[in-house]
Structure formats: C-alpha cells, structure tokens
C-alpha cells in the first residue's frame, strides 16, 4: 500500500511537470526544432530585446495590480455590507458573486464585449486598456468577497465595540482595528485576484479591442505561429516567477501560523 502510494504520487507529479520541464529544457536548445543542437541563451536574449513582449508584460502587471487593488477595496466594502444584510437578501447578494464565478469565462467575455461595443458606439470610445481593466475588476471582486466574508463572520464584533469604547469614532475603529482583523482575507483575495488577472486570456481576448496587448495575448499570437523558441524561454521565466511567488506566500503563511501559536 505504502509503495503504491509513493509510485502513484510520483507518476502524477511526473505527468504534471514533464511538459513544463520539457519547455524549459528546449528554451536552452540552440535550434528551432525539438532536436537538441546544443546549449544557448540566445532565446532569452531575444526575449528581452523584444519590445512588444516587454510592453505586454508591463501592461499585464499594471492591469493585474490596478484590478486587484480596486477589487480588494470594492470587495472588502461589499463583504462588510453584505454581512449586515439578513435572510434572503444576504443569500441573494452572496449568490450574485457566485453567478460571476460560475459563468464560463467565454460567456463573460463575449457578454462584456457586447456591452462595450454598444457603449463604444454610443459614447465614441474604443476597447482597450480601460475596458480590460473594468472586465478584470469584475471577475476579481467576487473572489475578494469570498475571502473576506468569512473573516468578518468570525471576527469578534466586540473588538470593534472595544475600539469605540476606547474613544475611536467609527472610521478610526475600522482603520485601527477592524482592518487588521480582515487583513488575511483581504490579502488572499488580493493575491487570488492578482494571479487570476495575470493568467487571464479569454476575457482579455474579448475585451481588449484591436491593439491592447497583454502577455497572454502575446503568447496566443506566438503559439499560434508555433515557431519561435522564445515562448520556451518565456515559459521558463514564468515558471520561475510562479515558483518564487509560491515560496514567498508559503513563508508568509508559516510566519503567520507561528505568530498565532
């Protein structure tokens, strides 16, 4: 049984990582095909010289940062409000967020595109940075609500009252006490938003208009042509970035747990 567990776990991990590691391996291949022609770093050099990719990267980061910040504020406020509703209204509001989460990305994408096109013709604007940002805030916010709501529910309400009792007005009590209680939920909501926004292709694809580029869109056009090994280099870099991010989060979590004990 023990042996089976180990072998099975190893096989699953192999299945998950072999494709990624293959890409990373070929990112060092001095040839355009999957035949090994010797070690090189030139694809990495090419990647950094590609101004389009670099600007797409900035766009992606900017959108992800703005969308997740905005979503965190909007979602935290929403969670506080929703928590004070009762009965059916509360359930309805909670489910409103779930609709957004459960709607297939492609439907959200085309629906937003439909609206932005209509608004665009009415108000004379073209889809681009702003519409992508609005779309990203829309699909990120429910995740923040989902993360913050349980924190509020489990928060000792008397802590807020204690702050009022000690001379805080409502805003001070929120800023000095409540926000600290909600912080872990807000942080994980922010992180989720950030990664979902970074990773999103489908919704960006439909709401970006004709010229706005993000990394996903860039990868799409590159993979469509299936030629440039620059993609391999990009994959390797993104993998390392994800790895570092995960390690940072894990360390942070561990520290938090330690502080709790």
């Amino acid at each position: 049984m023990k042996k089976f567990s180990k072998i099975y776990t190893a096989l699953i991990i192999l299945f998950m990582y072999v494709p990624i590691l293959t890409l990373i391996l070929f990112s060092f291949n001095d040839g355009k095909t999957t035949v090994w022609k010797g070690f090189t770093l030139r694809w990495y050099a090419d990647l950094f010289k590609d101004s389009q990719i670099i600007s797409s990267l900035w766009n992606t980061l900017l959108i992800a940062l703005l969308a997740s910040l905005f979503a965190t504020v909007l979602g935290t406020m929403a969670a506080i409000g929703i928590n004070n509703f009762k009965g059916k209204k509360k359930i309805l509001l909670q489910n409103a967020g779930n609709i957004e989460i459960l709607t297939p990305d492609i439907v959200t994408g085309v629906a937003l595109m439909l609206m932005f096109t209509l608004l665009g013709t009415a108000l004379h604007f073209k889809m681009g940075f702003i519409t992508v940002l609005l779309a990203h805030i829309t699909f990120c916010t429910p995740y923040v609500v989902l993360n913050v709501l349980p924190r509020i529910r489990h928060m000792d309400y008397a802590v807020y009252e204690a702050a009022l009792d000690l001379g805080c007005n409502q805003w001070q009590a929120f800023r000095k006490v409540v926000i600290h209680e909600l912080m872990p939920g807000m942080f994980s909501g922010f992180l989720m938003s950030f990664t979902f926004s970074m990773d999103d292709f489908v919704i960006t694809y439909f709401t970006r208009g004709s010229s706005f580029q993000t990394l996903s869109i860039q990868i799409y056009s590159m993979t469509h042509q299936r030629i440039s090994p620059k993609i391999n280099a990009l994959s390797a870099l993104m993998f390392v970035a994800v790895l570092i991010l995960m390690i940072i989060i894990n360390i942070k979590d561990k520290n938090q747990e330690k502080r709790k004990v």
Partner: peptide, 11 residues
C-alpha cells in the same frame, strides 16, 4: 498558476 496557453503549448 502557469499560463494556460503555455501549458497546452507544452503538450
């Protein structure tokens, strides 16, 4: 957490 296009591209 890797970009989904890259994962398909890997295959």
């Amino acid at each position: 957490w890797m970009n989904f296009l890259l994962r398909i591209y890997a295959w």
